Simulated assay, not measured.
Amino acid sequence: MASRKETLVRRASRVRRQLKKVANGRARLSVHRTSKNIYAQIIDDVAGRTLAAASTLDTGLKSSLKTGADVAAAAAVGKLVAERAAAAGVKTVVFDRGAFLYHGRVKALAEAAREGGLEF
């Protein structure tokens, strides 16, 4: 039986493989969450560089949050990454949830990014 880590890696690669088929050159909004924080970055896979990033560890955001591990923190990160993406000139992305289910903090981040102006 596969270990939990192997299962997560397989699921993340399956999601990314599907995203490559539909991306059409768009940047990828990648989400990673841990038990204490949540991270988001917009990646240009063609050039191989990060265009914008945000997390609950950002100095301005960390002081205003009660904890980095709740839905409110994820929503704040989503809004922040959308603002930074707009400053970098990115409007449309594909959403990469990685190995995480589209539920809870991941969903809150995605919805806040949409409200912030990102299209996916």
Rank of each mutant, 00 (worst) to 15 (best):
M1S: 14
S3H: 11
K5D: 09
K5I: 12
E6I: 03
E6K: 10
T7A: 12
L8H: 14
L8M: 14
L8Q: 15
L8W: 07
R11I: 15
R11E: 11
S13L: 13
S13K: 14
R14E: 15
R16F: 00
R16E: 04
R17G: 10
R17K: 15
Q18L: 14
L19C: 07
K21T: 12
K21F: 09
N24M: 13
N24G: 10
N24T: 09
R26N: 04
R26Y: 05
R28T: 08
R28G: 02
L29R: 03
L29M: 04
S30N: 12
V31W: 03
H32Y: 15
R33N: 00
S35R: 15
S35M: 13
I38Q: 00
Y39H: 15
Q41Y: 08
I42V: 15
I43P: 00
D44T: 07
D44L: 00
D44E: 00
D44C: 01
D45W: 08
V46Q: 15
V46L: 08
A47F: 01
A47T: 05
G48W: 13
T50D: 08
L51W: 07
A53K: 06
A54K: 02
A54Y: 04
S55W: 10
T56V: 00
L57H: 04
D58P: 04
D58I: 00
D58Y: 07
T59F: 04
G60D: 14
L61V: 07
L61G: 01
K62H: 12
S63G: 11
S63I: 13
S63C: 04
S63K: 15
S64F: 06
S64P: 03
S64I: 14
K66N: 05
T67K: 14
T67V: 14
G68W: 08
G68Y: 03
A69I: 04
V71H: 06
A72F: 11
A74G: 07
A74N: 03
A75R: 10
A76T: 03
A76L: 03
V77K: 03
V77W: 03
G78Y: 05
K79H: 14
L80F: 04
L80A: 12
L80T: 12
V81L: 01
V81D: 09
A82V: 05
A82Y: 08
A82L: 05
E83V: 09
R84H: 04
A85Q: 06
A85C: 08
A86V: 05
A88D: 08
G89W: 02
V90L: 06
K91W: 06
K91G: 12
K91Y: 08
T92Q: 15
T92I: 06
T92P: 04
T92W: 06
T92A: 12
V93E: 04
V93C: 09
V93A: 03
F95I: 12
D96G: 02
R97T: 05
G98T: 09
F100C: 08
F100H: 12
L101S: 13
L101A: 14
H103Q: 13
H103M: 07
G104Q: 12
G104S: 10
V106I: 15
V106N: 09
A108Q: 01
L109W: 02
A110C: 05
E111Y: 05
A113P: 00
A113S: 13
A113Q: 01
G116D: 08
G116C: 11
G116T: 02
G117C: 04
G117T: 01
E119G: 08
E119A: 13
F120K: 03
F120G: 04
F120Y: 13
F120Q: 00
F120W: 13
